[in-house]
Amino acid sequence: MERISKKQVYKLAQQLMLRLSEEEADNIIAEFDTLLKQLDLLDQIDTSNVDEMIYPFEEPTDFFREDIVDHVLPIEEVLYNAPVEEEGYFVIPKVVKD
């Protein structure tokens, strides 16, 4: 893996709806050096013909939830935590609809 550039760090931050100060971006780049050294450890492991392990236990289940209404939040509880609310809707600055 190559060292990450500041531009890449900012781009990732932007994709994640995060801002970074100059100093913070530098810190992340420095952290990547440690990460890259750790990746060297990973690279020493031969994983050809090994599948990704995504779940701790892999026997498939056969459970499905029955299609029965079991829980609706009262509107007061839906909106209780809403930062901005109007006539039962959550409100945000106008978004240009795609």
């Binding site: 939830r65 299609d67 209404v69 609706v72 939040l73 839906v78 006539e87 039962g88 809707y89």
Partner: peptide, 27 residues
């Protein structure tokens, strides 16, 4: 055409008042 959501037991809405067919999962 189901009665409830894909991943929650809240009802699928047919022109109901806003935000009345949801639970914490849908939000």
């Amino acid at each position: 055409k189901t009665k409830t959501k894909m991943f929650s037991g809240a009802p699928v809405s047919f022109g109901n008042l806003p935000n009345t067919c949801v639970n914490e999962i849908d939000l």
